[in-house]
Amino acid sequence: MADAPRTVDLARAFAESGVGEVLAQLDRELVGLRPVKARIREIAALLLVDKLRREHGLTAQPPTLHMSFTGNPGTGKTTVALRMANILHRLGYIRSGHLVSVTRDDLVGQYIGHTAPKTKEVLKKAMGGVLFIDEAYYLYRPENERDYGMEAIEILLQVMENKRDDLVVILAGYADRMDRFFTSNPGFRSRIAHHIDFPDYQAAELAQIGEQMLTAQGYRFSPDAKAAFLRYIDARMQQPHFANARSIRNALDRARLRQAVRLFETRDRPLCVDDLMTIEAEEILASRVLDDPAAKEPA
């Protein structure tokens, strides 16, 4: 080449884009979810490099960013999807950064000719942002061949292909059912570039999540309660219908109820702000999960 190689200042572009801050915030506010964060980091890097390439006159096809989130209940699929809109907006991939969250009911009509306008309406609303389809496998009902879900799927696929720069589609659902959904709709699998699997949380991560939830609501654990909560998590994880962070949230909601009752019953005693904020061990230990006498013993 005749002219000297032009240098590209990736570090400066990174600093200017504000991506570092987005990623740091993600690390700070979301516990665990290592593979998810890794994938978001990759997407951020790709978008940044694409931007640089465009600035230097190299061709940069806008990448496909349709995603599918799979994982067990309560692993943070919806939470991440909500943030994804914000992240992609700050990375400059989508124009407005709003998220339209829909389920089957919002897309599929009730009679012939109802589905197409309904789906198109939703797609128009989501343009410039992210369309989040929760429990996407309900769209396809193989047991009923006259189901209108297929029509919605066809329109979706078409828009996902043709309007890639207008809209990002995120599908979410439980892993096994999503797999079945993709096998019966191969078009979907190939149009989605990022299949992200959300792992289950470890006990320590759940404890951290619990404390973050409490802090956000202006509560805190007493030291005893903290230890009791760890035991509670261990016991709860062994039980059926464990839904990761969602179970933790429900447990904390019940603990708050019990705390309110305790405060109410001891109302002749003067209260201070600290009392209103603190969750004691007894609120955790009163849970049915720890009814098993073995579980009540300190570990």
């Binding site: 407005s96 797609l123 128009k124 609303k125 343009m127 942002g129 309007k163 207008d166 809209l167």
Partner: peptide
């Protein structure tokens, strides 16, 4: 009423 982006 409810569109956020001119594309629609």
């Amino acid at each position: 009423f409810d569109l956020k982006d001119p594309a629609g």
